[in-house]
Nucleic acid binder design. Sequence first.
DNA 1: TTCGTCATGTAATGGGTTACATGATTAC
DNA 2: GTAATCATGTAACCCATTACATGACGAA
Lengths: 225, 225
Amino acid sequence: MSRRSGILEFAVLGLLRESPMHGYELRKRLNTSLGVFRAFSYGTLYPCLKTLVANGWLIEEPGNTAEATAPLTGRRAKIVYRLTAEGKEHFEQLLSQTGPDAYEDEHFAARFAFFGQTSRDVRMRVLEGRRSRLEERLEKMRASLARTRERLDDYTLELQRHGMESVEREVRWLNELIESERAGRDLRGSATEGPAQQDTTSGAPGGLPRSGDEPRPDTPDDTAT
Amino acid sequence: MSRRSGILEFAVLGLLRESPMHGYELRKRLNTSLGVFRAFSYGTLYPCLKTLVANGWLIEEPGNTAEATAPLTGRRAKIVYRLTAEGKEHFEQLLSQTGPDAYEDEHFAARFAFFGQTSRDVRMRVLEGRRSRLEERLEKMRASLARTRERLDDYTLELQRHGMESVEREVRWLNELIESERAGRDLRGSATEGPAQQDTTSGAPGGLPRSGDEPRPDTPDDTAT
DNA sequence: TTCGTCATGTAATGGGTTACATGATTAC
DNA sequence: GTAATCATGTAACCCATTACATGACGAA
């Protein structure tokens, strides 16, 4: 039962819930698809996988990756990890947690990344929790700034200002998301293969208004250790 | 010569260069004034101070804090740390480094916080290095997004989009700063007590256009362990 | 046949937190 | 006199990285 890192364990469980994978691929997904928030090294990932197996949440299977809908690279895998029933149950239990941990930067991002498998009410609690966390932070920053403004040089001031602006921006983002959730819109379910949706109590389609970003395929690079 | 954490060591040296302080106060400054980037605990700070003393960069002095221009709280201190000549020299050497480390998130923030004591050319290199670092990151995100867009659900997509937007925003901020530096504006020198400016090769005043933020003194709170 | 990437691991180390232990000083 | 805050420290642990070691497979 040795308790390993919250966020890695969570993300691994979440990714494996979508489909079985081996460690190498798992790490890539962690760093790219979900890589917005965090990059983990093998030295962290493999030991973690072991303890998850030891906990009965995963099983190791030898053999080839299914590679779902598109067998792009028919590459052979050594050890494929698959979520067990207990693993699934455990993940669902983690998903339903709304404690203060879930509002911390990295933890929040991980939670958000799996909103597609999260019930609406939990989503709301997490978003609102995050928002009030940030608002607290803003209060502190404002207070501290008011106390020390004249003692600081302009660079320090500029740094603080930029920091606050970033936080304010995230609050606005959260506001939009929360409003969107409240209005009954649901961003879930547009993925290729959707694993069992547990308790969606609505279904009105239509996403958030997208700000125009247009990515182009450029340097198809990848991080290696 | 045991090498302790780069950023903490750097920040401690930088703060003590401005004026001598004891550990407790140092930590507060680290968490509030410069607290935008990082909070350290005593368990990290005190051992670090010890090794800095062992390296000959600080000396411990018993006695009262000078509290500079304003003896607001005439509070007595146990151990006041003061930068030695070697410490000053070492800090200056750290300040002049422009290696790739200086472009990482936290490290960069720490560097920026001490731009007031940094020469213009180093400032430029750090800002430009940071910018190209972020641009690389953007490329990767764009590429990864282009590769995986259709496999992702809308929440994951939204998370990526927001992440990219944040990075783009920081790039724009850096652009302004760089332009400002190039134009000869210098944000340095408006602090109450300015420690020796080493090599300013310009002096045109006038800061960056400030976006309006108006802080009010609200909850004058402080983080305690 | 050699290079790149896929693939799995381990040992040493780093950098930091938490919880604890201790005590002085100030405000009420 | 007691609570809050100031003030300094240590030991145990946690999470993760780095560098290393190993080897299979495909493409040039």
